[in-house]
């Protein structure tokens, strides 16, 4: 299983008690997010809704691309890749 870095930005670091990065075993972006939520249970409901869908206003980047423009959560990740969890630059309130 590839070892993947996950970096938490903005409020997602706050929700994880201040952690900014961690390393998880994952083969896709989705499994990396799930592994992250397992490590930081306080992140689980901040990242996904009650049906397991990724929440709105979250930007997830892997291999230099936002995943919604690539393979979504099923996008494969390789050893040493970094997944970034970023508060989406949206809204304006």
């Amino acid at each position: 299983m590839p070892r993947v870095n996950v970096r938490l930005h903005g409020v997602f670091s706050d929700f994880a008690g201040g952690a900014r990065s961690t390393t998880v075993d994952a083969s896709t972006v989705g499994t990396a997010i799930d592994a992250l939520a397992q490590r930081f249970p306080s992140l689980r409901e901040r990242l996904r809704d009650e049906h397991g869908r990724l929440r709105e206003h979250i930007g997830v980047f892997a291999r230099g691309e936002e995943i919604q423009h690539a393979g979504g959560e099923s996008q494969a990740v390789a050893d040493g890749d970094t997944v970034h969890i970023v508060p989406a630059m949206s809204g304006g309130g």
């Binding site: 409901e45 901040r46 990242l47 709105e56 206003h57 508060p87 949206s90 309130g93």
Partner: peptide
Amino acid sequence: NSAFGGPR
């Protein structure tokens, strides 16, 4: 009711 991280 946060936009970022959802409601809680």
